[in-house]
Amino acid sequence: MVAAWSPSGLAGPGWSPSASAAPPVRPPQLGASAAPTGEPPGSSGPVLSRSEPVQVAIPTIGVRAHIVPVADRDGVLEVPPLDRPELAGWYRRGPTPGEAGNAVLVGHVDTQDGPAVFFDLGRLRPGDPIRVTRADGRVAAFTVTGVGAYPKDRFPTERVYGGGTEARLRLITCGGRFDTRTGNYPDNIVVFATAAR
């Protein structure tokens, strides 16, 4: 489901205004074992060396956004600042886009002022292209393989953060119907992509 904008929608993956809100996205502990990612082995394109991402382009939904590094604090995935809703965040404790494993980008769905960077993420379909420009000047090209909506308390952690020998990309934002009682979205939208051949 594509998240609808709400006038009080200060939401992003892991954003929680109260203790009663659904549990946020939680990256696995460092050293966690890899798990199947959902894509068939050998379906990915070339693997690149480590280089931080600087921009993501998703032509299908008109996204061209700068990327800032984010981490996790007390097991909760950070997101870009709410006053910069046009930015995407890269989970810096994981692989960089194009490197072996699952690189993770996060972004807000909306703010009080309107749609944010990943507002239309749920419109992506298998086959859609995603391009990530890296600090080394190379562009890591990906192809969407699937899109899912998951309740935050049943987030597919291993499928999103799991390792492997192939280059994959995960995009995350909030989804579902905005809950005015908790000030949060109940779901996460996750886009799964593999390096283009």
Rank of each mutant, 00 (worst) to 15 (best):
R168I: 07
G176H: 05
R170L: 10
E39M: 08
W15C: 12
Q112Y: 10
L105H: 04
V63Q: 00
V190L: 02
G162R: 01
L169K: 04
Y161H: 13
R123N: 15
T96A: 13
G107M: 01
A100M: 07
V106K: 00
R170T: 07
G122E: 04
A135P: 07
I67A: 01
C174P: 13
V70N: 00
E39R: 05
A103M: 10
E158P: 09
L171M: 14
I130S: 01
V68D: 03
A100C: 07
L124M: 13
A65W: 07
Y161G: 03
F192H: 07
R168S: 12
V68E: 06
A193T: 00
D110H: 09
D110S: 15
G175H: 02
G38P: 14
C174S: 09
S44K: 03
L171S: 05
S33F: 14
P97Q: 02
G114C: 09
G137M: 02
Q29D: 15
Q29H: 14
Y91H: 06
A195N: 01
P13C: 02
G176N: 10
S51A: 15
R168K: 15
V79N: 11
V54I: 15
I58R: 00
G114R: 03
E39S: 10
R159S: 14
P186R: 09
G45M: 07
G183L: 03
A21H: 06
P36I: 06
G107N: 01
F119A: 11
P129W: 01
A140G: 04
R197K: 15
G31D: 12
R64H: 12
P41M: 03
V106N: 03
V76R: 02
E158M: 15
P36E: 08
P81F: 11
W5D: 00
A19E: 15
E86D: 13
A149I: 14
T96N: 06
